[in-house]
Simulated assay, not measured.
Amino acid sequence: MNAICNLSQLLEQSQCQYKIFDLGRRIQSIDNKEFKQVERGEKPYPYPLQRYAHLAVTYWNHSQQPWIWFLKFPLDERGLLNQTDIGNFLKYVTEAMGAHLSQELSEEQQQHLANNPYTFKPNDDKMALFHSLIRAELSLPTSQYYEHAQHYFSGQLGWNNWQTVGLQGITDMVSRLDSEQNGVLIRKALPHLTATTTQPALYALLGALEHVSLPNKLAQRLFELAQQECQASQPDLFLISAYVRALSGAHSDYLQPLLESIFAQAELSHSEILIAIAGRCWAQLNTEARAGKFLLRLAQTNNQTLFNQLFADLVMIPELRFTFLPLLSHTPSPELANALYALQQQTKAR
């Protein structure tokens, strides 16, 4: 038996099929080959959040019932996993389960495995969607709330009766947008959910959509609603933030014009919207022009702490690192130059 040095080896040696997901930003899969390179320290973690890797490790055998670990590992200044942390977690696993993972755990074993510093619990909304996505991917049954949610979004129950709809039913629909006309039902329902009385249902739906890829017609409808809100005489900044997050899985043809509309209006530079862009739509900040506009609006919030946190977070993302770093020495405005100077001074003081 080969010595086990990383999670992939342990999973493969146990003859399990597995998938790795990032849960820090959007719920998105990480290719197994890429994850092996990350584990070996050959490349940085692709989706860092606040200098941590937030992982869901899902594995299953012939029974198709998946086991899931939610893991959180610190990253170094280069965005690399610490091999010692991986080794320590493997030690917890092998002490609790042995060298094979296909066995059922006793309550004592489960407790022993849970008592380690690398596990974390995602928030309830993200947990609900993740479980729906996994069950859809493995062709497992939906929750008991699925059919009721379909009836609601078809308009059969009355739009104001959103209190009867379970979140798990919404996430089941969102994780199956291409099945049973779910994408069409949601797209046609959206205009009915913008009223004040139905906004809780709208926010629940938008929160689920931010973690999946959107069909173009649904993305187009969300984009239109977001643009309408941006152009309103008194725009709802929190609703715009929710639309931005929901569109993070849309084609850039929809997302980029929305971001340009936001950057063009100083009154939309609310911290909630800028946090949404940084947390969910970071891939759209991959040009110096858009990165500069984003940082300028962030500087104009006059919240230096938030500026420092978001800059430090974005510069850790491998695909953005060499877009954001040059801005430290070349900035388009005095406001942004001052914010970046304050950031550098604080960094030097540490």
Rank of each mutant, 00 (worst) to 15 (best):
M1W: 12
L7G: 04
Q9H: 03
L10Y: 03
K36R: 11
K36E: 15
V38L: 06
Y47C: 12
P48S: 07
Q50M: 11
R51E: 12
R51H: 11
T58E: 10
T58V: 15
W60P: 10
S63I: 07
Q64W: 07
Q64C: 06
I68A: 03
L81Y: 08
L81Q: 12
N82P: 00
D85G: 02
E95A: 11
A99Y: 12
E104D: 15
S106Y: 05
E107N: 13
L113G: 03
N115Y: 06
P117S: 11
Y118N: 09
K121Y: 07
F130P: 05
H131A: 11
L133Y: 01
L133G: 02
R135Y: 11
R135H: 14
R135V: 00
A136H: 05
E137Y: 03
S139K: 08
T142I: 01
Y145N: 11
Y145A: 13
A149M: 07
A149N: 07
A149I: 06
H151S: 14
Y152C: 06
S154Q: 10
L157D: 15
L157H: 02
Q168K: 10
V174F: 01
D178N: 12
G183C: 02
G183D: 03
K188W: 02
L193Y: 02
T197N: 12
L206N: 03
G207P: 06
S213Y: 00
N216P: 00
N216S: 13
A219P: 02
F223I: 00
Q228T: 14
E229Q: 15
A242Q: 12
S248F: 03
A250L: 04
D253R: 15
Q256V: 15
L258F: 12
L258D: 13
Q265N: 12
H270C: 05
H270I: 01
I273E: 05
L274I: 10
L274M: 10
I277Y: 10
L285V: 01
E288V: 10
F294H: 06
L295H: 08
R297K: 14
R297T: 04
Q300P: 04
Q300E: 15
Q300A: 05
N302P: 00
N308V: 00
R321Y: 06
L336F: 02
A339N: 08
L340M: 10
Q345K: 14
A349V: 01
